[in-house]
Design a protein around this nucleic acid. Sequence first.
DNA 1: CTGGTGCGTTGCAATATCTGCAACGTCCAT
DNA 2: ATGGACGTTGCAGATATTGCAACGCACCAG
Lengths: 263, 263
Amino acid sequence: MSQTVDRALSILPLLAEGPADLGRVADRLGVHKSTALRLLRTLHEHGFVYRQSDQRYRLGARLIALAQEAMENLDVREIAHPHLVRLNEQCGHTVHLAVYEEDEVLYIDKVESRYPVRMYSRIGKPVAITVAAVAKLLLADLPENERRAVVEKLDYPLYTARSTPHAEAFLKELAKVREQGWATDLGGHEESINCVAAPIRGADGRVVAAMSVSAPNVVVTADELLTLLPLVRRTADAISGEYSGRTPVHHADPLHHPEKETP
Amino acid sequence: MSQTVDRALSILPLLAEGPADLGRVADRLGVHKSTALRLLRTLHEHGFVYRQSDQRYRLGARLIALAQEAMENLDVREIAHPHLVRLNEQCGHTVHLAVYEEDEVLYIDKVESRYPVRMYSRIGKPVAITVAAVAKLLLADLPENERRAVVEKLDYPLYTARSTPHAEAFLKELAKVREQGWATDLGGHEESINCVAAPIRGADGRVVAAMSVSAPNVVVTADELLTLLPLVRRTADAISGEYSGRTPVHHADPLHHPEKETP
DNA sequence: CTGGTGCGTTGCAATATCTGCAACGTCCAT
DNA sequence: ATGGACGTTGCAGATATTGCAACGCACCAG
């Protein structure tokens, strides 16, 4: 809508790929060098880009600080975190928390597996929306028409032989997930990795987030992982209760929540 | 330099404080509502802001994803991380990694203490630059004139009775730190918290990052913490060696480094 | 039911703002 | 020296951005 801003913002993902010099930025943007320079300058003033010693531009610190603030404001995350940690302590596997936002599902928290073999994922990174267990739960809860619209728009990459192949199959899967109130991903994203997931609901019953436990075949079989389902669901329910204000917040470890700012 | 971009970017920190509606954004920016609307729309298209169900705007997901990418590109961080973890396993306390960037020092990695009492800090958050041990190391290594310029510009908040009171004292402290090659913060930020820090150097000998171990008095005394100094320095040196390419990268646990993307 | 208030949204005309150009400075390698 | 690559600046023209005023809509109170 606003050309100047549009161009300026386009610079950021570009720099995320790695440092770039002025000429490169200008080229990729399709504008004159002087224009790119002025945009970069503005970004720089706000701390969004940083000019390293070799004169090339990198993403700046303020960006990181902002994102961190953004995450702290997500109150589901804050409430859920101790529960995720506890769950991880109980089962040892990687625990994820994800939310849906504008056609994307993204991880907003993660507790690493205690086993040496870990799965690759990244907080803030959009998840493989057509196969991830958490994505299924989040999409399954969208209103009928919106869900349909989103599902139709998606691509269906065949990560493995068990990936969801197309919209139709996905809709069917979502219906099932919606029905049973939990979801799995059995090797749909990476051949050897399985997940079990459960929804976290707000006071009105709508799914606000989803959590999952993931483990590679070499550690536990899919069947063994499924035995954790009740535990995962209980954890998710506990978070739901706390998030929607039904459960009096119970602090297993009150020192876990330090004061914001001043001592 | 560019008014439009400038205004657009100013919206982000504003939203970081919490969700805001159009009117509020327009007011704070000092522009007409329609102008604010168009800026927000552009930010929205890029995923930097998100419109929640009550129509108010929040910081968006792309911001988080970008910041995460930005951090992954910091290669000091990547190299240092396993070392930080190992150090944490050895001593049990909170370990921080920080870099200097444009008049600020900020944490770019953190491994939490295993003790229940933890210190409050946040990745991406600028540190208390006048007192933090890591900040001293990073500033101490700046070229004379630049260091002086920065130090003069700073505020010297008295967090505690032992905080650095003014520029003069700070310069003196920096000289000492520069001399000895390590730094401490003994209750300068929070009465009951002490830190020991050591520098990480690039191939040219310049300090590229600094790491610290922090622990509250209730867990270990300052003297006890100081006994960790040799260990901290060895760790920092190990990171330096690897970062500057002198040391052949040695994998204590090769499975620690998952492949990027595809399996 | 109705009038009012608060909010987001749109079309428009005026102009302030941004753009691309061309020229300059600097650094580096040939 | 000399050429090229790169970042930087002043300028005039063009275009994108702005604020206004009017509209639509939802919500609330009388």
